[in-house]
Nucleic acid binder design. Structure first.
Length: 281
DNA sequence: AGCCAGGGTCTGC
DNA sequence: GCAGACCATGGC
């Protein structure tokens, strides 16, 4: 099922915008599956910052409420961000030709791959290397508080590449990013200088886009694939981190099934979530 | 204390 | 092409 931009499938009530009868949308699974690092939950309400704006949402059964959201922003920003044009029932049906993927998908039907900002995604996954999710979130929070703009009291935008390009590793010391600081700066410099045109990558074929990202120090196969999948709309990207290597060795030793080729990244996300919640060693 | 975390670079074979 | 040391930091 797909939400279209036609009225009826969403309504406005007061300052809120409400999606009706939507399956495959669970904020907890979307924001807690390791693709976005700027959201947190309080009493079932998820809140964070994306594209320079605060987003607040909550699921109640098959209804999703976005708080303080105008119809204009919904149409122009959040419809794309939450990929409401994607038919997840159909994707799940396709990859469920394989029994293992069917099981993994059934375990977290509410996951969606967000369309995040390419720079924010790249920078976040540079920070992610040899790191754990709570600490990744901490470093990114300090990055935004230190170098971003305060868009609302207590909420900060993600700093642009230009903002960081002329800084030094000493300037980044308050982030406690360790050896990753120099990689963040190299990415900011190459993008600011036009050596890597990050906002053009989603229009390039997967392999060409990947080669561009690999020009950046500290960006290898896995970080590039995460940036492509979560920030450049490349659903065929299949990032292999330690969790995926473990779950593949145990459940799919012959490799990713052919039926999942087109949506490898979505299958990967179901597997990642499954592995982390089943103590796969 | 030692191991691990959504890895990558560098060196040596 | 592949193995191993090393890289900062913090939680367990």
């Amino acid at each position: 099922m797909v939400i279209t931009k036609e009225k009826q499938q969403y309504t406005q009530s007061g300052e809120n915008l409400v999606l009706h009868s939507i399956k495959n949308f669970d904020p907890e699974e979307i924001f807690d599956c390791g693709q976005a690092f700027r959201f947190s939950e309080t009493n079932g309400v998820w809140q964070g910052v994306a594209f320079g704006k605060v987003v607040t949402c909550k699921r109640e059964g098959d209804t999703v409420i976005f708080y303080h959201m105008t119809e204009k922003d919904f149409i122009e920003i959040w419809y794309d961000y939450f990929t409401l044009d994607m038919d997840y029932d159909r994707v799940i049906q396709i990859i469920s030709q394989d029994e293992t993927l069917k099981c993994a998908a059934a375990f977290a039907k509410g996951i969606r791959i967000l369309r995040q900002d390419p720079w924010e995604t790249l920078c976040s996954f540079i920070i992610s290397q040899n790191n754990n999710i709570p600490r990744i979130k901490g470093i990114i929070a300090r990055l935004c508080e230190t170098f971003g703009d305060e868009i609302e009291p207590g909420f900060f935008s993600f700093p642009s590449p230009d903002r960081l390009a002329d800084l030094t590793v000493e300037d980044l010391q308050p982030l406690r990013a360790g050896f990753r600081a120099k990689y963040i700066l190299d990415a900011a410099k190459k993008i600011t200088a036009g050596q890597v045109e990050i906002y053009r990558l989603k229009h390039l074929p997967y392999e060409e886009a990947k080669q561009e990202l690999l020009k950046i120090k500290g960006v290898g196969q896995k970080v590039a694939d995460c940036a492509l999948l979560f920030g450049c709309e490349k659903l065929e990207a299949f990032p292999e981190d330690v969790w995926i290597k473990r779950v593949m060795a145990m459940l799919l030793p012959a490799g990713l099934p052919e039926c999942a080729r087109e949506y490898a990244g979505i299958a990967q996300q179901y597997l990642f979530h499954y592995a982390r919640n089943h103590n796969i060693k």
